[in-house]
Each structure stands twice: as C-alpha cells, then as structure tokens.
Design a protein around this nucleic acid. Sequence first.
DNA 1: TTTTGAGTTGTTCGA
DNA 2: GTCGAACAACTCAAA
Length: 485
Amino acid sequence: MTERPIILWFRNDLRLADNPALHFAKQRKTPLVPLYVWSPEEYGDWPPGAASRWWLHQALRSLRDDLRGCGSDLITRVGPSGKTILDLASQTNASAVFFNRCFQPALRERDEHVTRQLVDAGLEVQTYNGSLLFDVGDVRTGAGHPYKVFTPFWRACLAKPVPPQPLPKPRKLPEFPSFRAVASHEPDLLANMSWENKLADHWIPTESGAHANLREFTQHALAEYHTGRDLPAERKTSRLSPYLHFGQISPRQVWHAVSPHEHPPTPKSDETPAKSLYQYLAEIGWREFAYNLLHFFPETRNQPLRPEFADFPWERNAAALERWQRGMTGYPMVDAGMRELYATGWMHNRVRMIVASFLVKHLLIPWQDGAAWFWDTLVDADLASNTLGWQWTAGCGADAAPFFRIFNPITQGTKFDPTGGYVRRWCPELAELPEKWLHQPWEAPANVLGAAGVILGENYPDPIVDHPEARKRALDAYQTIKKQN
DNA sequence: TTTTGAGTTGTTCGA
DNA sequence: GTCGAACAACTCAAA
C-alpha cells in the first residue's frame, strides 16, 4: 500500500521559503501534491486584473521550476476550488489538504465553504497564517474593537512578541510518485493581452527575484529610506509590493531581514538609520492595518467608510478620466506617474498620492474609478491596500488625510523631483525643458518652450484644469457634504 | 462614563 | 527665502 499524499494548495503564498503550510506538510513525511487552482469567479467583485494575471502567470511558472528543483512539481487546474480539490484528492487518494489562509473577504468565505466540503468528504484540513505578521483580529483596542487609527494600531503590534523567525526553505520535498498520471490544466492568464508584455522589462516575478530586491534595498537604500523614499527618480524603495501580494516573500522574512535585532526599533530616535528602519517597517505595518480594516469593514472596497461621503457631489467624466489614465493631464508630475504605471505596472508611492489626489480633488472623479484603474494596471494590486490608499486620499476612510489637504502637483514636483529626472524619464517630450519650468510648462516663455521643442496643445497637452480654480471647486464640493452633517 | 491628548505623507497666506 | 498660523473641527483610543 502506498502512503496517502497531502495536497498542498497554493494561493497567494507562491514561495518555498517561510511557507508554513509547506513546512508542516513536509514534516508529515508523506508525498506532497502541490496544486494551484485558477478560479477568478471566486474573487467576487474584484477578480484579478490584467497586470496581476501577467504576474501570476510568471509566478506560477517559476514556482513550478522551484518545486521541480526539490524533486516535486506543481499541478495547475481551472475550475471551482472545492470540486477541483475533491477531484484531485480522489485521483491521488490524498488524505489531507494544507494551505495558508487568504484574507480578502470573498476568498475567506470561499475558503470556509471549501473547508466544509473537504471535511465532509473525510479529508483533514490544516491552515496557517503565512502572509501577515499578526493574524487579522489579533490586534485590537483595549475595548476589543478593531483599530481605526494607524499609530495606536502599530504601537499595539510592536508591543506584541516579535514575529517568529522565518521557516527554512526546503531543499528536497517528499516525492509524489505518480505526477505523470495526474493531469494539469494551464489557466489562460494572458488572454487578450498586449501591453503587459513589456512588464517583463521591469520585473523578475520569481521568489529569487523578491530576495534580490530585498538584498538590493537593505544594502543600498534602507539606511536613507527616511528621505530617499520620497524621491521617485531614484530607486530608494524596496519594490517588494507585488512579491508581498503574491506571497513570493513574506512580511516575516522582510521583518527579520531589515531588523536583525529582536527588539522593535524605537520611533523616537533621531538617528537617521533608526528612523529609516522604523519608517520602513511601518510601511509593512500599513499593509497589516489595511488587511485588518478590509476584514472588519469589507464593504469599504466599494463604499466610503465615512458615511457622509456617500453624498459627495462627484462628477463622473469619461474624457477626463481617460486623460488621467493615459498621462495626458498637462501636469507633468501626474502624467509621469500615470505613464510609469502603464509602462511598468507599478508607480512610486509618493507619486501614487499625487495622481490620486489629482483625480479625486482636481477632477472630482470618484475614487472608485481610480481604484479600478489601479486594480487593472498595478502588478501589486491588493484589495486591502488599494482600498485603504484611495479612501485615505479621498478623505473618506480610516485615519484619512482631511479632504481639504489638496496636493499641489507643481509644488510636489519641485519638492520631490527637484532636478526633474522622473518627469524627463516618463515625459520625454518635456526632457529639454529647464528645471524652472519643468513642472509648469504652461508658464514658460515662448522662446524657452520653442528651444525645448515643446508645443503645448500639440506634443504635450495644455493643463486639463487650472490648479487654483480646481482647488476652490474641490473645497466648495466638500462644503456641501459638511453642511448636511 | 468622561475627559484628554493625539492624529503618514499639505497648501496657502502674510509677516 | 523662511516661518508660523490657519485651514476646521472630528474621531479615535486610552486613562
């Protein structure tokens, strides 16, 4: 009689190192059947977008290679998760299913449903937390409520025991003798794609690619993260967001790579490296915070957390939305960001705030429209972080920026892209403009524009709105929901 | 229960 | 150029 295998169900945990489900399944010393199931309809109203599918396609290939390197393999299938796993269990005579938990609300419900199906069929089910430092719901206020303000949330996290050391990466996995007898079905993740092909010029969507980015960051940017993180022209951020989303690296691995001492850093320190370390870890903290908020307030993926914003006088405008999406607003900092996004599937965090503020406040377009575009084009699209980020910008979320804080795209540009390296890279038609006019070409004298080869309205657009006017319009719109409440 | 202190990332205006 | 104040009060979390 052959030993009954364990099905290892991969989801957003596409890695071998520090993978609890994999680690504890391996300890059973029975054969492992690694499985990925493509079932986009189970994501509810936010199925993976185009950039996410491109990344997933690459990540699955890479995971399969890595598993083969350990003497194993990856089965991929398409269909409803419960039925697909049950079919595979009966084909392989599996006795158990191990997986790491998902935290997106629709997937959590799906997992509960699937678990019931599996248990009813007599299978053992084991689940683990592999994607958060602190399990959702573990960090609560003294009164037992979820936190709605980041700082006390993160302070409470740091007061907890330090997250455990990452689990080791297996060199060899228990072999499953009859992989050849089990059919794989490749999901068609790249259907109808064209622009995504160029993403490969900017990313290595593999587990080792994640660690290469982490190494590069800790060696060359972490110590000056405090200031460097605001400069989009430079590579001073870790660029780990897509890897974290797909679980090619875990927040625990990141924590222990940047924080060699067991004690959490103190935020009060004035020393730049310590400040930098704290600030970087706080970004991981924001991810945790976002997961908690989405868990306790799942409707915020579509609706503002602050109810008064349901009456905000947004102005849906398809033409303006498209100019924003294509990077043709006439504000160089905004356009550079939107073009970076479309070309690379990613945008620097500082610039995300600028373009988001511009859409919501200068154009008065609903934040949900911006969230949808980010969702489709970002390789790191994550429902929790995307929701938090957009509601933060729009002023309608937890711990959000007040609505009257309106980013000035010119000031932001001169402050954070002072020599214009970022704008010149992504808006090459402006590359010859001197610094003084780069962030406001419409103010440049005709001879300066001429010398730089810029013809406003022809090879670079006139500003879509006038900043002072748009600012006033936004503040007036905000007054209308304030009066009612 | 009441009180108190605090809160990611800004901008503009006027001295 | 640089600085502080105003923006506009409000909600959250803990004592």
